[in-house]
Simulated scan of single mutants.
Amino acid sequence: MSNIPEDLVMNVLSRLRVKSLLRFRSVSKSWRTLIDSPTFIKMHMERSMKIGSTVEVIHRRNLKKFYSLHLDLSGNPVRDPEELPHPFGYRYDLEDSVVFEIHLVGSCNGVLCFVDSARRIVLWNLATRKYFEIQYLRIETPKFANFYYLVNYGFGYDCVTDDYKVIRLITTYNGISECYLVEVYSLKSDSWTRFEDLVGNTYRDNHGILVSGALHWIRDDNESPIVAFDLTEEEFNSCALS
């Protein structure tokens, strides 16, 4: 089997379903490394979309369960939804809907980003079912902001630096004063960067939507209700409605 060219192996494996790939990861260390590689994951996703199927993840917060649904190009399911194993582990199988609340922040290139009520963030690879818990960063707010704060998240892929990034927007206020903070996590460097949000204005309770290399949020500003964060430049741009 070692005599088979790697590009041929990759070509064949990229045509298989995820369930088959999970089994074939046990064939050898080289196959496991190949299937887990970002290059193969991208190739598998691109081929899946070309043949007319994709995967949509459905999040049901009240039941804390996740499902994958395969659709054709018309949006019709090609088979019944399949329940996915829980990325946070067995401790979230409990019935406590407050402590064990889980949110799907976003997805990109087959990698999903989740955050729980304890503000723990997990990246989950759908193809390999492997997940990575991001190092915890405590939310630091100004001394005056002891009344309330709102946290918005975003997740996306920076194609220029070949890096996955998680964005955390923090709006803190006590009814009189407000402060806006931005925290950026880089998977490549496994580190957080914290700086002030110069755009300002309170964000609504929503996760960032990735479009053209930038994450977009809705905020409370009639003139520029949408703000975009460029993942490469790591800077904001306001979007006015025409």
Rank of each mutant, 00 (worst) to 15 (best):
Y67G: 04
P87R: 07
V9W: 07
G213H: 10
V166H: 08
N237M: 13
Y67N: 06
I35R: 06
D190S: 13
S14V: 12
V55Q: 09
S20Q: 06
S2M: 09
C239S: 05
C179E: 12
T193A: 09
M45T: 11
I58G: 00
G208P: 08
N62C: 10
E235V: 02
I134Q: 04
E101L: 11
S191H: 09
V78I: 15
S28R: 02
S74L: 12
G213F: 09
S48H: 04
S177G: 00
F66G: 03
E235T: 09
K130E: 13
E234P: 01
P87F: 07
I176C: 05
D190F: 01
T202R: 10
L69W: 01
L126W: 02
E133I: 04
D190C: 12
W217I: 07
R32A: 12
N152P: 01
Q135M: 04
S238W: 02
S224K: 12
S26I: 06
Y157S: 03
M45Q: 13
S186Y: 05
Q135N: 13
L94D: 12
E101P: 00
H86D: 07
L16K: 02
R23M: 05
G110Q: 05
E56G: 11
M1D: 08
G175I: 06
T54D: 13
D36K: 11
C113Y: 03
E235P: 00
A145H: 04
S242Q: 05
P5V: 11
R32I: 00
P81C: 09
P142C: 12
P38Q: 06
Y131L: 03
F66D: 02
F24I: 03
L137S: 14
I4V: 15
M49R: 14
T54P: 00
R47F: 13
L73V: 08
V122S: 02
S191C: 14
Y203F: 12
S2I: 08
Y90K: 12
S48D: 09
N125H: 08
R60C: 10
E133L: 02
K64H: 08
M45L: 15
P85I: 08
M43F: 15
L126F: 04
D7V: 09
W192Q: 08
S212I: 02
H59K: 10
F229D: 01
S53Y: 11
E82R: 14
G106H: 05
I4D: 01
D162P: 03
L94S: 14
R60P: 00
V18F: 08
C239N: 02
H44W: 11
L112C: 03
V78H: 01
K29Y: 05
